[in-house]
Simulated scan of single mutants.
Amino acid sequence: MDKKDLRIIFMGTPEFAVESLRTLVETGYNVVAVVTQPDKPVGRHQDRLQPSAVKEYALSKGLPVLQPVKMKDPAFVETLRSYNADLQVVVAFRMLPEVVWAMPRYGTFNVHAALLPQYRGAAPINWAVINGETMTGVTTFFLDKDIDTGRIILQKEFPIPDDADVEYVYDGLMKLGAEAAKETIDKLIAGDGHIDSKAQVVDADTELHTAPKIFKDTCRIDWSRNGKSIYDFVRGLSPYPGAWTEMKATDGGKDYTVKIFKTVKTDKPSNGEPGTIVVVKNHLLVNTANNLLEITLLQLSGKKRMETSAFLNGFHAIENYRFE
């Protein structure tokens, strides 16, 4: 089988998926159509429609684009069927009904940004960093009726440095995911439609970590946790969506919401209640359950992101505040 004979439909929405689509298109694979989310209303009055990153790339290459509101819509299903695809490739998209994922003769595989069965769910990159993992990766697997439980085709590892934030891991996995997608298809072609896969096995003594969708409340910092845990939490949400905390005035003054994007671990033991602030020269430190944690990059609501030194120069009476 030649790669030009294999008819592929690609499904994805964000920038993360574009790298995989670009790799397939620009290395000669036969992508016959692209499925992505409907354009999203944006702007102050939600009066402007923003196409997805995948749609923008697909249109730039002259690829047909389908944007169903409902994946089970009969008109969409029939249109999808009309492309007579041999394979569907899914990267950072939504859950598919069986009528869609079972349609191609060689099935549908997904590129997931974690080493399954660990970190099944919508936000695997964030949660791997939040949990202090030193290794993550990507998995390609065949879709089935449950979320992220299908048969594994291949996996590629990606180390997480201790000072890495989500942006670093996201960029690395985006490129690695594209490599995995291409390699998976190559295996399928080499096997003339057959590809080895294995069931996901979870040992009884293995702790499974999940990766649920992240909401605003998920991002609030709990200062009663230890310093390392908070350090990982902050970098696991930086630069987006951003860990946050309330900066409460202890003297009846104005309270603020603060996003924190970067911290530095210290070996200095805490000397006060969790959340209390300590300023040493031009350094902003916060008490945690065990050690002082230094904040080096933050943003007051309504203000621009800034280094802590600039923040302290412009914000007076910081000693009258604590984080909650």
Rank of each mutant, 00 (worst) to 15 (best):
V202W: 14
E133H: 11
D217S: 08
I189Y: 04
A128T: 15
I160E: 12
V169F: 05
I160V: 10
D186L: 15
E207D: 11
G177D: 04
R151D: 09
D192E: 15
Y168H: 09
G177H: 03
P212V: 01
T139E: 10
E133I: 01
E133R: 11
E207P: 06
A178L: 00
L143I: 14
K145E: 15
D144I: 00
G137F: 13
V202C: 14
A190G: 07
D205R: 03
K182A: 15
G132C: 07
Y170H: 12
G132Y: 15
K145N: 11
D146Y: 14
G193F: 01
G191S: 01
T210L: 08
Y170L: 12
K198G: 09
A164E: 00
P212R: 01
N226Y: 03
R225H: 05
G193E: 05
I152L: 03
K198R: 13
L176M: 00
V129F: 08
A190P: 07
E179P: 05
I230A: 02
I160M: 13
G227A: 15
N131K: 11
K213A: 09
K156W: 03
L154D: 13
D146T: 07
K187M: 03
D148A: 10
R220N: 11
L173T: 00
E179Y: 09
D203V: 00
Y231C: 10
V166C: 01
D148I: 02
I195V: 12
T140C: 14
G177F: 00
R225W: 04
K213Q: 04
L208Y: 09
T210V: 04
T134N: 08
V202R: 14
I185H: 06
T136N: 08
G227I: 00
T218V: 04
R220H: 14
I214P: 11
